[in-house]
Design a protein around this nucleic acid. Structure first.
Lengths: 250, 250
DNA sequence: CGTCCGTTTGAGGATCATCAATGTCCGTGG
DNA sequence: CCACGGACATTGATGATCCTCAAACGGACG
């Protein structure tokens, strides 16, 4: 609650030596356009973005910015997972979104940033000053269109989450959450097992439940033979059909 | 559930005679940019949009498009209120958003439109073919930036709703809803009274409650002297401070 | 004036939150 | 390397809130 913003800034290391390197977020930013086609960042666009972006690495639980802090930058996730959340006076927390590589964050209005954003895992991101970004976007309408698509996608994700949170049954919420996570983490899957990056409490805050309710829902899923846990983080989906049935049962 | 899309299309009447007319949506589209400044559509931008837009008028309850229909157009509300919602197999409905004049809708992905959109009141809107809009935006980066801001704003609104839906107490949900509606309908307020355009069921679907729960929550607000209803639609906020306290009590 | 749909009201039951205690994991330091 | 501490997670018991089902009421429209 004290001055959390800008406190965790690490050495701004020059990232991504080559324009053709494999992994970096800015070189493979895929977005679905409204019309259904797929767009990629060109090398030129990537270079221009890199010129105004600053790469930062943070440890888990680092705060990138706090709610209401004046908004000067937008961010793109490079590696790791972040969470965007708000806190209420009661101490309750609501996670608005989990952010994955290539996701955009830094949503703000005149009051400043809309959420607090923290790293869930060790992570890194690009920091882009709003003024510079705006200038760049005004010069490059194609690039701007990619941003438009990306924000549109974020809006879809947010609406989907609203639907999920609107459900009453903890079982259905957790099932939906696991389904979404499975898609996000499909790449790093090891023998059918995915590793959830976030804690039970984070999941509870995301689903608008208590940790106890999440725990009990997980227990029921295990008992029904739908999933198996190996430790608290590693989960294996044994019966995708049954899981899907629970998801759709609303 | 049957073929709902495109069934209610009315005479496409040429709208907005003058570039300086007072009310029309496209001439006064105000958006807050991420940096906090305010942008307006220029006359030139308005004219260009008008050239590719088609104006349509519909009666209350008309369906503009249905979930999963192929997405060919985006829309801007001109007059009246719309609702964007999804329906589940159980018959349950969730309203993702109410749409007010100047709001953008037509969110889609590869699967087609994301929600079903219906008019809540008699209403009119602009229909803009996606291909033409994309071409226009690519030519006019400033205009495209306005769209970017608008979608960003929609994302903020969606996140706010997620927070509201995440609450457990019907009283707090309804109080929050009334506060938001008050802001939206402030213009048409008559002696402290606002007229809710939507039904109780619509409100219930928006708040992820049953109509019964909405009814009881309204009753409690009345009983506490926070609001007064005059009929089912007209509501007067008697004690804004108390209302705000209920909103923040989470 | 009558019907129909939306709304309100009531009673009963299910689910989740709360509170409290125990159990487990992980990082830290001895 | 092991022991310890603290945070996280699970489990159980209780209570509050909302959903469900059912019925009566009201307004809107033909």
């Amino acid at each position: 609650m004290m001055q959390l913003s800008r406190t965790v800034r690490q050495k701004p290391r020059p990232p991504l030596p080559s324009a053709h390197s494999a992994g970096p977020a800015l070189s493979a930013w895929v977005v679905g356009s409204a019309g259904g086609s797929i767009q990629l960042l060109t090398d030129s666009q990537r270079r221009q973005l890199m010129r105004i972006a600053e790469h930062e690495t943070v440890r888990a639980n680092a705060t990138i910015y706090s709610e209401h802090a004046p908004a000067e930058d937008v961010f793109i996730v490079h590696e790791g997972i972040f969470k965007a959340f708000r806190e209420f006076k009661s101490g309750k927390r609501r996670v608005a979104a989990f952010l994955f590589p290539r996701d955009l964050f830094g949503l703000a209005d005149k009051q400043g940033y809309f959420n607090t954003v923290q790293a869930v895992t060790p992570a890194s991101f690009y920091r882009i000053p709003i003024a510079a970004l705006r200038a760049l976007l005004t010069r490059d309408a194609e690039l701007e269109f990619l941003f438009l698509c990306k924000v549109t996608q974020a809006l879809r994700v947010s609406q989907r989450r609203s639907m999920m949170v609107g459900r009453k049954d903890a079982l259905g919420k957790l099932a939906t959450f696991l389904t979404v996570m499975q898609k996000h983490l499909a790449a790093e899957k090891h023998r059918g097992r995915i590793v959830l990056p976030m804690t039970r409490s984070d999941i509870a805050d995301y689903l608008a439940l208590t940790p106890e309710a999440v725990s009990r829902a997980a227990r029921r899923l295990i008992h029904q033979g739908v999933v198996a846990f190996d430790g608290r983080r590693s989960v294996c989906i044994l019966d995708p059909f049954q899981l899907q049935k629970i998801v759709e049962n609303q």
